[in-house]
Amino acid sequence: MSRLHPAYLWLARIAVAGLFLAACIAKIRDPELFALAVNRYRILPGEFVNLVAIVLPWIELLAGLAVLVAPARLRAAGALVITGMLSVFTIAISLNLLRGIEASCGCFSTRADAAVSDAWNLVRNGALIWLSLAVFLDAFRRAPSKESP
């Protein structure tokens, strides 16, 4: 992972950033439907559902932009935040699957007819975690150190 070809790293940045930028659109457009999707995970206390629905899409947007266009340190931060979000999403989807909750993941669509989550979502998230970690490690290594001449 730590020695990926620069072309692969660019592809990883485009894939991770592109997915998160695409994912935030529906959530920003209709926060009420996204709040409903968050509530369906049955993980957060009701008091925190709207807070997450209001803020999370903007974290996705800014982290996606950071991975795509920001200098190394901010890019590393964006990739680390995305890795963290993906890990939390993966745990949440796994819990839904284990509990037999037939909900959509709320990842890219907040519509009622969005596909129900399945094991494919976990595979996709696993691949995205791998890519975002690769972007993070590369960017963190490139970030200028204050001690450098």
């Binding site: 926060p31 009420e32 709040a35 509530n39 009701g46 008091e47 559902v49 709207n50 807070l51 629905a53 209001i54």
Partner: peptide, 8 residues
């Protein structure tokens, strides 16, 4: 969206 919803 209100900051706190009545989800309960």
């Amino acid at each position: 969206l209100p900051w706190v919803g009545d989800w309960e």
